[in-house]
């Protein structure tokens, strides 16, 4: 059914921390891996080892330079995948009902056996979150790893999206935005989580945390000199050189 639910019981989605992301693309690779080896048509590559390689990905990391009016430019790594919008325009345009938004958790999915590959849902998405797989002829998109998060065959710590599980920097968080006390809701509130392209009216569930104004250098306190005065041979050398050089 391509009619959007009025309200979903839960609002599962991601928080992506632009302050923490180091741009390593590990989330891109783990996403491609999991979604090629598991549910649905594999994410195909074309001419993978040739001169003009191209492939289907559900998650891609851009990098942007932000130049403030004064001061140095800042580099922001920017992972982008499906935002599982509340008002998902990709769902309503689908002629076959292959695209749908789940009432129970708000995940936007494609039923691949109903997809005719018309591409209209990808046209309707402002974020470029959907990609037509040229080998399978069906539309591919982020499933929020629906085959991991409820999968009781996996150890509990693995029951989260592959991109979140793999992120070495802890820049990706998974949770329920309908619950105001959830980890992701709190993060969004504390750090001013934002919507991408709010003027498009899609009401994205996923939130992006803006870079902090100042870097928090967690290592600095540990790098303070622990002793100013030297003893022994080094002490003698220090004193002698100070006398000679006058420093």
């Amino acid at each position: 059914m391509t009619t959007l639910p009025e309200k979903t019981d839960r609002k599962l989605g991601l928080v992506i921390d632009l302050d923490t992301c180091v741009g390593c693309h590990a989330c891109v690779i783990s996403c491609k891996g999991w979604n090629t080896e598991n549910y649905g048509a594999p994410l195909a590559d074309q001419d993978a080892y040739g001169a003009d390689p191209s492939g289907t990905f559900l998650n891609r990391v851009h990098s942007y330079e932000v130049q403030p009016e004064t001061g140095p430019a800042q580099l922001v790594h920017f992972p982008k995948s499906c935002l599982h919008c509340e008002d998902a325009p990709c769902v309503t345009v689908c002629p076959t009902g292959a695209s749908y938004k789940r009432v129970e958790d708000g995940i936007v999915l494609v039923n691949e056996s109903d997809c005719i590959g018309c591409g209209l849902c990808a046209w309707a998405c402002p974020y470029g979150a959907r990609e037509m797989d040229p080998s399978a002829g069906v539309m591919k998109k982020c499933t929020l790893c629906v085959d991991r998060i409820y999968n009781e065959n996996l150890p509990e710590e693995d029951r989260e999206p592959a991109c979140v599980r793999t992120c070495p920097a802890g820049a990706r968080h998974f949770g329920d935005f309908a619950d105001p006390d959830s980890h992701v809701s709190k993060l969004t509130a504390e750090r001013g989580g934002m919507d991408l392209m709010p003027e498009q009216g899609t009401k994205p569930v996923n939130k992006y945390l803006p870079p902090r104004d100042r870097d928090i250098d967690v290592l600095a306190p540990f790098l303070e000199p622990v002793a100013e005065d030297s003893k022994g041979f080094l002490g003698w050398l220090d004193k002698t050189l100070s006398k000679v050089g006058g420093a």
Partner: peptide
């Protein structure tokens, strides 16, 4: 990121083309 300064695409996500 617009309220922080002028945003410019620094590096695309991939070297090749895509869908």
């Amino acid at each position: 990121l617009g309220d922080r300064g002028t945003v410019r695409s620094f590096e695309p996500p991939h070297t090749g083309t895509n869908y």
